[in-house]
Design a protein around this nucleic acid. Structure first.
Lengths: 340, 340
DNA sequence: GTGAAAGCGCTAACAC
DNA sequence: GTGTTAGCGCTTTCAC
């Protein structure tokens, strides 16, 4: 069954013996078309398999019933978000368009602005932007930011309680008896990273444990960048007995490095992550981590966007709770057994 | 930093004191523009933050450097694929646009045709369609199907070796001593489902074990639909000791049902799945399953699409191998201990 | 080297 | 009720 060619509105009009304007009215359910005509046109549309071109439609009408999700790349975090948004969108009448700028995260600053400029005003009626660095609001175009890199702006936002989560993680390590605890952070310009580090310091202070500043270092939130940081800290003469990694990828990277250095996780080193991306359960040992309800964040962001477009008055800052997920990468501290 | 309005090409033209035609030439790197003009225009573009509208651009030029990935919804399988495609796309110069029709899988037949009609000819230069039922080729538009529901057509295809994988799964259960093995299939119209059932039957036959037809039933590949099927089979007087579920979701569903019926997995019932979506490792007990290299399938599909567009001659049917992933949901068969 | 003008597929006024 | 027309933002001849 091969359609020879893309069929457009004039094809339909010709076949139905009406003008394109009439076809347009039928397609969009406008009033002022005879019942008989409506039926005839619909029949032809069905026969020819006509579907309005998103590009042309949006160019003209500025309303497409398509919502955009803009990401730098499709990695575990953004795809979890996508699942949540996808589940939430059913029944709203909107369709979802996820757009990846193709830049590896951090590679090109400003991807969010470029993607937004490319799609807004045409194509999509609103957008969810995932972990944007800069956000600028265009007039009459609705945007929701998920886990933005900078602190709260006027923009509608969905994030999780990074500070409380970090406290949770640190307290867990403390409760296992660890005192030499390292923290691998993301980057100073990332709001979530700053909050996690702050939570770490708060929990340490509350427990009366001094933070060794040599054990707090930037890891960049990515596998490769975190590896170097982990290696440095684990090579210290008085290396940490536990690591609170700023996100799961850093934690996984730390476990890799530890293994390469002949250290066993969790026997010689406890590691806890942050995010609970599916991948965290797949590593060996399965990673103990702080769960952000990522899918729910996606769902909430989508719902918020739909409400904003509909003009519903509501709180436009959503913060979801985090939770400790205990797996197998942490263990109570025991002093190193002295050689026999 | 709030941009008041979307800036378009005439804004740039006006600010630079040239015509839109010239701006277009600069944007697209066409020859025949004075060096000085090029620089001036580029400066203005940068200042104003201009970015070409994808909608308008595609409408006119039929070339956008954007590749589409069309899915029914964003669920574990399609998002894994997305990760693979996303990794592969970097460096090709293309950007990725994932489009979800918003129909829950199986809800609306023909989503793939509608989505394709909406985006092709405008917006995207080619498409990867995920698990399409019907596929029709449009002239001059390149499409790659991943795991299509119907058997090999002329269309370029990427799938995994479903038959061999099913044999692997069944042999594993047989090697554990199981003989009453059930199979929950997808649907008869799904090629992957048919092949998995065929592999199951082949392995059973090769082992000289008769298939009890009451233990081979349709489950539909989704959590809800598989639950009923699982419940029926587990309620049989001589219930199976092991289940080979047609995909991970069916397997997870079966484990749920078993738990509800007071059966322990794997003590009372062994369960093996198919796909190895990340979620399969997250359930309790972690699911033993057959891995399809989903991310690699996404990467291969993308690469194939890029090559097709570039006119590269190559084999357009890619079949990737499957592999057994042993986790904790299966155990050697032991006769039920008789009550004391 | 540059700009005017046509037109991609569609929608929205406004005529008829 | 229906068709004519203009124009969304852009690219592309083709004059100048």
């Amino acid at each position: 069954m091969a359609f020879p060619q893309r069929v457009n509105m004039s094809d339909v009009a010709r076949a139905a013996g009406v003008s394109v304007a009439t076809v347009s009215k039928v397609v969009n359910g406008r009033y002022g078309v005879a019942q008989a005509t409506v039926e005839r046109v619909q029949q032809v549309i069905h026969q020819l398999g006509y579907e309005a071109s998103l590009g042309a439609q949006s160019l003209r009408s500025h309303r497409t019933n398509v919502l955009g999700i803009l990401v730098a790349e499709f990695e575990p975090f953004s795809t979890e978000l996508l699942k949540g948004a996808s589940a939430e969108v059913t029944g709203t009448g909107y369709q979802l368009l996820a757009y990846s700028s193709g830049d590896a995260a951090g590679t090109a600053v400003g991807w969010e602005r470029r993607s937004l400029a490319r799609l807004s005003g045409t194509l999509i009626d609103g957008a969810v932007i995932v972990t944007p660095t800069v956000v600028e609001t265009k007039q009459g175009f609705h945007v929701v930011a998920v886990d933005p890199h900078t602190g709260p702006s006027g923009l509608p936002t969905v994030d999780s309680d990074n500070f409380a989560g970090a406290v949770l993680a640190t307290n867990y390590l403390l409760s296992l008896g660890h005192r030499r605890i390292a923290h691998i952070s993301g980057r100073a310009d990332l709001e979530s990273s700053r909050l996690r580090e702050a939570g770490f310091r708060q929990a340490m202070a509350d427990a009366g444990v001094a933070v060794d500043e040599r054990l707090v270092r930037v890891g960049g939130f990515r596998i490769e960048s975190a590896a170097g940081t982990a290696a440095e800290m684990l090579a210290l003469p008085d290396r940490p007995t536990a690591v609170f990694a700023g996100n799961d990828l850093s934690a996984i990277s730390t476990m890799d490095v530890a293994r390469c250095m002949g250290l066993s996780v969790p026997d010689d080193l406890s590691v806890i992550g942050f995010d609970n991306v599916p991948e965290s359960a797949l590593v060996n040992p399965p990673l103990t981590t702080i769960m952000q309800p990522i899918q729910r964040m996606g769902a909430e962001a989508l719902r918020l966007l739909v409400d904003l477009i509909a003009g519903v008055e509501r709180d436009s800052h959503i913060r979801l709770p985090t939770e400790l997920v205990v797996r197998a990468s942490c263990r109570p501290y025991s002093p190193p057994s002295s050689p026999l």
